[in-house]
Simulated scan of single mutants.
Amino acid sequence: MISPSNMRLWGIIRKEAWQIVRDPSSIAIAFVMPVVLLYLFGYGISLNAKDIPLGLVADKPDLITQSLQGSFERSEFFNLMTFNSIQEAQLAVDERLIDGIVWMRSNFSSNLQAGLDAPINIIINGVDSNQANITNGYIQGVWQAWLTHFAESKGVELSQTVQIKQRVWFNAALSSRMYLVPGVIVIIMTIIGSLLTAMVVAREWERGTMEALMVTPLRMKEMLVGKLIPYFILGMASMFLSLALAVWQFEVPLRGSFWIVIVTSALFMLVSLMIGLLISIVSKNQFVAGQLAIIITFLPAFILSGFLFDINSMPTAIQAVTLIVPSRYFVSLLQTLFLAGDVWPVIIPNSLVLLAMLIFFYVIVLRKFKKRLE
């Protein structure tokens, strides 16, 4: 026999489920928005620098300068343009036609063959400092590779006391998609968990249905659980969709345990739901609740979670602020589970912090969620 408590709980769950079905915006946010965001960040946005417009000037062209020019032309990182004079190349930089210049002076080849210093001049547009550093690094890489090949062709060795052998772990191709896609899943779950739930109680107050709910035999815990369960299921369904797209469409490797991904995702979803519900209880207005959800959850998740910007590069005060951002811990979890695997020194501390946040917000919500008109 079904107890009255279970019947009341089932009733409020059905009510919220029908509300979701009747609201096209909820379905769109849960299933259309993840696809759009994943395709946008997966294909449309890349932090990898490729086809950098680069100018090359050789004051005295010969076979050696042509060989170096060929190295830059074969590189996937550069889109090379040649100029007859440094003045023409500098004008192209001013007009933003190219981002940098490789300049070989007239004595470049003769000095190189004579074993003298034969530096190349590099001029880089530094308006975007990050892009400038990347461009400089790629130029140095091409130059060093060509210089090594040139020395071998002459039967001599470069006078280098240190030889660097580079090995990249977890993301050997250095593809930004590999860590952007897991981060986008965090953003998606943040939006679904906080934004949709922020509207739940606020909508009841605006429509005047909260008063009707308060005169029912529903207990506050039953109302709380009944409102959260449908949105939790909706959020997890969106997570499964995002996970499938990440693995099969964008070919991001899932090296960690699938079940750990599910458990940590459920934990983060519950934290987001609690935050959204708390916002909804405090604001009692859908517009205000939506704005607060964006400011309190979405923007910190986008800026302060480590999704796009390295936390260690932030000022100390901002790093301290990131400690109270739940998405920071989930970004670390997902990126580790996707790219590195089951690294328990990362999984356990981050999961415990999320669990502590869940308990904290649950207690706050229970205290604020009272069955009375105020």
Score class of each variant (00 low, 15 high):
residue 223 M to L: 04
residue 40 L to W: 01
residue 248 W to L: 14
residue 61 P to D: 13
residue 367 R to A: 08
residue 9 L to D: 06
residue 21 V to F: 13
residue 62 D to W: 07
residue 111 N to G: 06
residue 108 F to S: 04
residue 26 S to L: 13
residue 365 V to Q: 06
residue 369 F to M: 10
residue 347 I to H: 09
residue 267 L to S: 03
residue 220 M to Y: 11
residue 88 E to K: 11
residue 110 S to W: 05
residue 26 S to R: 10
residue 65 T to K: 04
residue 286 Q to S: 15
residue 345 P to S: 07
residue 151 A to K: 03
residue 9 L to N: 00
residue 301 A to V: 13
residue 73 E to I: 14
residue 146 W to L: 09
residue 94 D to L: 12
residue 226 G to R: 01
residue 365 V to C: 03
residue 142 V to N: 00
residue 75 S to P: 09
residue 53 P to L: 02
residue 204 E to S: 00
residue 79 N to H: 13
residue 34 P to V: 12
residue 5 S to K: 01
residue 373 L to G: 01
residue 43 Y to V: 14
residue 324 I to P: 02
residue 273 L to A: 05
residue 31 F to I: 11
residue 212 A to R: 13
residue 30 A to L: 12
residue 179 Y to L: 10
residue 2 I to Q: 14
residue 150 F to P: 00
residue 256 G to A: 12
residue 303 I to K: 01
residue 266 A to K: 00
residue 277 L to M: 14
residue 51 D to W: 08
residue 309 F to R: 02
residue 308 L to R: 02
residue 199 M to W: 15
residue 314 M to V: 07
residue 126 G to K: 09
residue 107 N to G: 09
residue 9 L to M: 12
residue 73 E to D: 14
residue 73 E to S: 07
residue 247 V to F: 11
residue 111 N to W: 10
residue 27 I to E: 01
residue 31 F to N: 06
residue 246 A to Y: 10
residue 139 I to N: 01
residue 80 L to P: 00
residue 80 L to G: 04
residue 368 K to E: 12
residue 329 Y to N: 05
residue 135 T to G: 11
residue 247 V to N: 03
residue 106 S to A: 12
residue 6 N to S: 10
residue 109 S to H: 10
residue 201 V to R: 01
residue 332 S to P: 01
residue 140 Q to H: 15
residue 328 R to S: 04
residue 322 T to A: 02
residue 213 L to S: 10
residue 259 W to R: 00
residue 277 L to I: 03
residue 133 N to P: 09
residue 156 V to D: 00
residue 371 K to Y: 01
residue 244 A to G: 09
residue 32 V to R: 10
residue 62 D to K: 01
residue 372 R to D: 13
residue 286 Q to K: 12
residue 342 D to P: 03
residue 354 L to P: 04
residue 231 Y to H: 07
residue 203 R to V: 11
residue 332 S to L: 08
residue 215 V to D: 08
residue 306 G to H: 05
residue 296 I to Y: 13
residue 21 V to R: 08
residue 367 R to I: 05
residue 260 I to V: 15
residue 369 F to E: 04
residue 313 S to R: 08
residue 216 T to I: 11
residue 181 V to M: 06
residue 338 F to H: 06
residue 362 Y to H: 13
residue 98 I to V: 05
residue 216 T to A: 05
residue 54 L to V: 02
residue 40 L to Q: 10
residue 123 I to H: 06
residue 199 M to R: 13
residue 132 A to G: 02
residue 328 R to F: 02
residue 128 D to F: 03
residue 284 K to V: 14
residue 65 T to N: 12
residue 297 T to W: 12
residue 320 A to F: 14
residue 249 Q to C: 13
residue 85 S to R: 00
residue 343 V to A: 00
residue 291 Q to I: 13
residue 293 A to K: 08
residue 67 S to Q: 10
residue 52 I to G: 04
residue 349 P to F: 14
residue 55 G to T: 03
residue 163 Q to I: 15
residue 80 L to C: 03
residue 133 N to Q: 15
residue 60 K to G: 12
residue 251 E to A: 08
residue 296 I to R: 02
residue 346 V to G: 06
residue 227 K to C: 08
residue 22 R to Q: 10
residue 177 R to E: 11
residue 264 T to C: 10
residue 250 F to N: 02
residue 296 I to W: 11
residue 174 L to V: 14
residue 87 Q to F: 06
residue 198 A to N: 03
residue 56 L to P: 02
residue 52 I to A: 04
